[in-house]
Design a binder for these strands. Sequence first.
DNA 1: GATGAATGAGTATTCATTCAT
DNA 2: TATGAATGAATACTCATTCAT
Lengths: 209, 209, 209, 209
Amino acid sequence: MGKLDENKKHKRDSLLETAFRLFMSQGINNTSISDIADQAGVAKGTFYLYFKDKYDINNKLICHKSSQLFRNASAGLDDHAEEASTFEDTMIYIIDSTINQLVENPNLLKFIAKNLSWGIFKNVMSTPVYEDDIDFREDFRRLLERFPERYDDPEIMLFMIVELVSSTCYSAILYSEPVDMETLKPYLYRNIRSIICSHKMAESKTADA
Amino acid sequence: MGKLDENKKHKRDSLLETAFRLFMSQGINNTSISDIADQAGVAKGTFYLYFKDKYDINNKLICHKSSQLFRNASAGLDDHAEEASTFEDTMIYIIDSTINQLVENPNLLKFIAKNLSWGIFKNVMSTPVYEDDIDFREDFRRLLERFPERYDDPEIMLFMIVELVSSTCYSAILYSEPVDMETLKPYLYRNIRSIICSHKMAESKTADA
Amino acid sequence: MGKLDENKKHKRDSLLETAFRLFMSQGINNTSISDIADQAGVAKGTFYLYFKDKYDINNKLICHKSSQLFRNASAGLDDHAEEASTFEDTMIYIIDSTINQLVENPNLLKFIAKNLSWGIFKNVMSTPVYEDDIDFREDFRRLLERFPERYDDPEIMLFMIVELVSSTCYSAILYSEPVDMETLKPYLYRNIRSIICSHKMAESKTADA
Amino acid sequence: MGKLDENKKHKRDSLLETAFRLFMSQGINNTSISDIADQAGVAKGTFYLYFKDKYDINNKLICHKSSQLFRNASAGLDDHAEEASTFEDTMIYIIDSTINQLVENPNLLKFIAKNLSWGIFKNVMSTPVYEDDIDFREDFRRLLERFPERYDDPEIMLFMIVELVSSTCYSAILYSEPVDMETLKPYLYRNIRSIICSHKMAESKTADA
DNA sequence: GATGAATGAGTATTCATTCAT
DNA sequence: TATGAATGAATACTCATTCAT
């Protein structure tokens, strides 16, 4: 990579980090592009060389931060092989790890907010912000293959879990409503297991209301 | 009610309805207070006699529209007593009825959007926009009492259901992602039943992960 | 007229006059709306209560100033009845009077510039800026009726004269190119008479208005 | 011409042609130097190696395109010797030919617009864009010499004709105001002949149609 | 000569809110 | 109560021009 390219990467990184910091602390609506550029140490016009507008940089950040979140959550898997001996346990492990990160960093939760939902999973896949951003669906597919059980409509199952986790965490972590996160966890995990269980493939199984 | 009061109520109603129409069609960010006042046929200054700002009117609308939604959903209950002979069936009936309304009116879903979640249930209770707006929690409590089964932590149970329904419907109805609403329903209702079931009170039952 | 209306008229006048002064001295491209509002003693937003943008105010000024120009030119007619005893002489009188005003005020010529052409005659008619702005075409029609001669296609005749006068004056007055205005006048007036003459109606003539 | 020079000429030509295309379709104000450079396939900085700014390239284009216009108009002269047996007829022939080109290409008229007037004739002379761009005044002088008649102040005569033609054509071709070009032609040509006639050097001179 | 990344001055427009009537 | 004229802060975005490579 040439000196010029390094310089460009540095500028882009600086804009991303600065925007993240400002969006977290003031919200996107109270952050102007001038603010971002100024604090990133580049001219206003330079912002537009890298991003279309502040919503563009916001989307890229959500993708990137979500990616980091899941990568961190998955990172510990190998060290906890015994806790994660089944698919269910592995999912719970990853989810618990993710939730713990969010409990530690509620601003991050606020930032990726309700966006940590299905829409994200699709976007993240297609537009990695950094070359090492992960591909959730691919990861999930691989995870499924590591275990012997097969599941009906795994995508719907994943969707249901993601939506349930993300929307309940938001309320529990940020507002302790209706109860705090630690209190909620056993109920939540029980429901996740129940969702997974209901998708377990068996001869006579059919979806019914 | 005096003529003056009627006149005032009329202005307020006109502002609420106009704002609802504009928020639905253009979104709140693209709707100015001028727009609302103009189209409601009152002067701009008059807006401020009734509402603090457009977020105030927005919140009141979300509460009111949510209230309508649930009232409509509950309205048919008496006529379908046989379908709703248990608590579970009754919940499914109400939820299905709600979802059907949203399928018919996706703009309404977009409007109350992800707001149709736990936060709303608290607000709606405390600040009825119209005197006949309902009190969800009270209604839910009454509903529970009508059936013999008792449930552990009914508020958590309700929370879990509300969050799961609202976040999955958003994606399924508006974007048919990952599947359309009709396809999703059996999976969703199965999970709701499973959540309710797991809260059924029994001597030996305890919440565990 | 109430106090409020007077106040509004005063603001509008102030904006028009200020814009005229600035457009004349700096050109429209170098004049910002802030400049106009500031120097007119009103807030920037107030500008938009009266005009759509600076091109709107520019058009209104061109119309109004053109109207003044012709009103002034026509004003002396009554005092010079003997000089203007025929239609030709009257036209020459009005044109000469107009040109003399522009020679005295070349900035005005620059301002209404090449706009003092056919397009203007149509606009001015339809959108008077002030209630006393004149209607050129109506005035021209009345003028024609005051004299016994009839003319073929008087509108085309007028068009030809207006275009010839406005484009030659621009060059002659502002740049003395190819000669100065006084030198050009005899040639120009001879040609105008010739144009009028060629439109004079005769029995055997076919094109008639 | 060396290879390097050819390369340079090619870049310059590409910039000129691209600018012409963009100015015609979007107008000069909506065309940025970036647009021109990008679409011409050169770097932005390269633009400045050949032209001062976009007004520079615009002027050069107006001159060049006007030159082409008149060259085309004059090109057919030799083949129509019988139609152009007098100076008057020759002028009319050239003007008619020019007008016909503009009718076919109204965008070109819009582009050189009201600029197709006296100012241009001076500029074109002094700064040929291409080595074969013509010198109008010299051409006009030669044309005059080819015929026996002598004229008073031929430059004023030419000026008057150019201004009359250019300003009336603009309105007639682009807006059919006050009439379309074909309708206008007989009136216009009659007036041009009258202008020429009035400059004819002779004792008994009178302006006649 | 050629490039194109970086710059940052420049400006139109919106709109929530106030307050004199 | 009701009005709507007036305010002016706030901000996104463009683009001509430079200059290090």
